[in-house]
Design a protein around this nucleic acid. Structure first.
Lengths: 139, 139
DNA sequence: TGGAGTGTATTATATCACTTAATACACTTG
DNA sequence: CAAGTGTATTAAGTGATATAATACACTCCA
């Protein structure tokens, strides 16, 4: 499965995307889902780099994007911490979901799908997924 | 708007994505939506390159991907033609939509959204879009 | 106070995808 | 035979990505 544990987090890295982007996305998900508590310290750049067998610069790149997102706060000499603002995390989650939804709909419409057809596709897939596994297809 | 006409097609190119990918996607859309008739000849590599102010190699790259998709057939010395198989086009459209849907759902679930929440988001956005413009938000 | 651990910045090197350019070839049509 | 097709090749340049090796300023704690 090529999974790597670091602290309470689990990462899956491959070569299909930039490494820093994969780290970034998986950190965003962990924060959005509350898998890391608000205000909690995340692994240091060097610790993360060592655990993921990746260059510290690459981890640093991802961490700086997280701060640009407003999801983390960095304290010089101390480390990087998840923001304490629950509102900020919720807002980010909403905005990202909104972007994903808009992109998805735009692409479906570029193939000639109508709103009703898109809704029907989603509903069909939901029923397919919830029949097989009880976890809603998440895992 | 930075749009370029070539034959009956309209292209919009920017620098946010590889040029060959943008050409590829917009050709796929045109074929899937039936904006180009089955069996019809598409502009030659050189003509398209000149019209889009792009290198012939870049257009050729996109055209070869189209053939890999099974959406076009190339006849040496004659040109590139849309497949005559309506079934092939429909199948491609379905498969691409299926992929888009699966990716979208996976990303939403990675943010902690449930199936019901995803369905509600889509339905809300549909109502927002159909209130404003009558074209369903496509243009 | 000093050492260890923080994030950050810098410079250098290497690789890869993408793009352009200039040719060349085999094929088909008129 | 000439013009137009797709295709292949070689070369060059650019930018993003990643690694490596240092260095610096900061904070904490023994």
């Amino acid at each position: 499965m090529d999974e790597r544990q670091v602290g309470s987090l689990t990462f899956r890295l491959d070569l299909s995307q930039p490494l820093y982007e994969q780290i970034l996305k998986q950190m965003r998900s962990a924060i959005a889902k509350g898998e890391i508590a608000l205000g909690e310290k995340i692994p240091s750049v060097r610790e993360m780099a060592h655990a993921l067998k990746v260059n510290p610069n690459t981890v640093s790149h991802a961490y700086q994007e997280l701060e640009r997102d407003g999801l983390t706060e960095t304290r010089r000499g101390q480390g990087t911490f998840i923001t304490t603002s629950r509102e900020r995390v919720q807002q980010f989650r909403r905005e990202l979901a909104e972007r994903l939804l808009a992109d998805f709909v735009a692409q479906m419409q570029s193939l000639g799908y109508t709103w009703d057809e898109i809704e029907r596709c989603l509903h069909t897939k939901k029923k397919e997924a919830t029949v097989h596994g009880r976890n809603g297809g998440a895992l």
